[in-house]
C-alpha cells in the first residue's frame, strides 16, 4: 500500500514535469491545434458540400465527432516523439538511477497527456460550436462522449509510449506513426460511412477502434450518421465497443511499454 502511494506520488511529480514542458514550449500545442482545425475547415467546408450522409444530416455535424477522435489518434505521435526524445537523452539515466518507482516516468507521461488532451478537447469543442456543430441529447450524454474520447486518447498514449521506446531516435517517429495512423483514419467512419465502402473494407472500417469511438459519440451527441442502413453488431453496440477497445489496447500496450522500458538496462 505504501509502495503504491509512493509510486503514485512519483508519477504525479513526473506528470508535473511533463506539464511544465507544455508551459515552457506552448508553440508545440499550437502545432497540435493546427491539424484538427484545418481538418474541420477543409473537410467541413471544401468537401462538405459534395458529400452525403446516409440519413441525410448535415455533413459538418457528421464530421466533427470524427475530427475529435482523429485528434486523439494523432496525439499518439506527440506522445511517441516526447518519449523517444527522453529515451535518447541522458535524463532517463538519471530517472533510472533514482530510488523511485520504475513505472513513474511512463505513468507520469500518460497522465500528463490526458491533461493535454483535455486542453485540446476544449479548443475542439469551441471550434466545433463555431462551425455549427452541437450536441442534441443533453450535457450528460455529451460528457460521456468526451469521457470515451479521453479513453481512446489513453489507449493511443500507451501505444505512443511503446512506439517511442521502440524507435532509435525521435526523428524516425513520424515515419512509423503516420503509416500507422493514416489508414486507421481513412478506413474508418470518420469521413465516409462504412456502408458506402466496398463490403470487406466496410467491415474493417466498422471494427476499427476509431470507428467505435466515433459511432458512440455520434450516438451520444445525437449527431447524424449512425443508424442509417447499418444494423451490424459494431454499429449497434458502439458505446460498449468504445469502452472495450481502449481497455484492450491499454491492457496490451501498457505492459509492453513497461517491459520495454525495463529492458533499457540490457
Amino acid at each position: 500500500m505504501r509502495k503504491l502511494r509512493l509510486a503514485a506520488a512519483d508519477s504525479w511529480v513526473m506528470t508535473g514535469r511533463n506539464m511544465a514542458h507544455v508551459v515552457r514550449s506552448p508553440e508545440e500545442i499550437g502545432i497540435y491545434f493546427m491539424l484538427p482545425i484545418t481538418f474541420v475547415l477543409v473537410f467541413g467546408y471544401v468537401f462538405g458540400s459534395g458529400m452525403q450522409v446516409p440519413d441525410g444530416g448535415n455533413y459538418r455535424e457528421f464530421l466533427l465527432p470524427g475530427v475529435f477522435a482523429m485528434t486523439m489518434l494523432y496525439g499518439m505521435g506527440a506522445t511517441a516523439t516526447s518519449v523517444a526524445h527522453d529515451a535518447q537523452r541522458g535524463v532517463v539515466d538519471r530517472f533510472r538511477s533514482l530510488p523511485i518507482a520504475r513505472s513513474a516516468l511512463l505513468t507520469g507521461r500518460s497522465v500528463a497527456d490526458l491533461f493535454r488532451a483535455l486542453l485540446e478537447m476544449t479548443v475542439l469543442l469551441v471550434c466545433g460550436l463555431l462551425v455549427g456543430w452541437t450536441w442534441h441529447r443533453g450535457a450528460g450524454y455529451a460528457l460521456l462522449a468526451v469521457a470515451l474520447l479521453l479513453a481512446l486518447r489513453m489507449a493511443m498514449t500507451w501505444i505512443g509510449i511503446y512506439v517511442g521506446l521502440l524507435v532509435p531516435n525521435p526523428d524516425t517517429v513520424g515515419t512509423i506513426i503516420f503509416p500507422l495512423a493514416f489508414p486507421l483514419t481513412a478506413v474508418s467512419n470518420v469521413f465516409v460511412a462504412p456502408e458506402l465502402m466496398p463490403g470487406w473494407l466496410g467491415t474493417i472500417s466498422e471494427w476499427n477502434p476509431l470507428s467505435a469511438t466515433v459511432a458512440a459519440m455520434r450516438e451520444l451527441f445525437g449527431n447524424p450518421g449512425l443508424a442509417g442502413g447499418s444494423t451490424s453488431w459494431p454499429a449497434e453496440n458502439a458505446v460498449a465497443l468504445a469502452i472495450a477497445w481502449p481497455l484492450v489496447l491499454v491492457a496490451v500496450f501498457a505492459p509492453l511499454a513497461v517491459r520495454r522500458y525495463q529492458r533499457l538496462s540490457r
Binding site: 512519483d10 511529480v13 508535473g16 514535469r17 511544465a20 514542458h21 515552457r24 514550449s25 537523452r89 541522458g90 535524463v91 532517463v92 539515466d93 538519471r94 530517472f95 538511477s97 533514482l98 530510488p99 523511485i100 513513474a104
Partner: peptide, 25 residues
C-alpha cells in the same frame, strides 16, 4: 550519478530541474 552526457531535462530551467529531482527524492 553524473554521466558523460549531462543528464538533465533540457526543456526545464536549471531550477526546475533541481526541484524536480529533489521532489523525486
Amino acid at each position: 550519478l553524473t554521466g558523460q552526457y549531462a543528464a538533465v531535462d533540457e526543456t526545464l530551467s536549471g531550477r526546475q530541474n533541481l526541484v524536480l529531482f529533489g521532489r523525486l527524492h
